[in-house]
């Protein structure tokens, strides 16, 4: 057991209400619920509304998921359809159904 519970701070950058963004958000929520229950915060940033934020996180592709905490910073781009890749990217140990 770790002394302190880690919180995953996740930021999802989208641009408007597109199919890809929606798919990404749905996928992300699903994985988090499954593997990080209660240990995550998701912030969705719509760049169409806040374009000035794109520079700070070096956003190029949409959608981009940025994991700021815990370190290291990782970015996952795309609609997050590949669960294994997302989990590796976010450094999440999948919760086994058996345990």
């Amino acid at each position: 057991m770790k002394p302190k519970e880690e919180i995953w701070e996740l930021r999802l950058y989208v641009a408007g209400n597109t199919a890809k963004s929606n798919a990404a958000l749905t996928n992300l929520k699903k994985y988090c619920e499954e593997h990080l229950q209660g240990k995550y915060v998701i912030e969705v940033i719509d760049l169409l509304k806040q374009p000035q934020l794109a520079e700070g996180d070096q956003i190029l592709a949409i959608p981009t998921l940025v994991k700021k905490v815990p370190e290291p910073i990782r970015k996952i781009i795309g609609d997050l359809s590949n669960e294994a890749k997302v989990l590796v990217g976010l450094n999440i140990r999948p919760v086994k159904k058996s345990t």
Binding site: P51, Q52, A54, Q58, I59, D79, S81, V86, V88
Partner: peptide, 24 residues
Amino acid sequence: HIDRSEIEETGEYDLDGLFIRLGY
């Protein structure tokens, strides 16, 4: 700045982020 080691690609994406930054 694009650092390949930081970036994981899964599924479809586009470069709207770049467009938005440039547009902004």
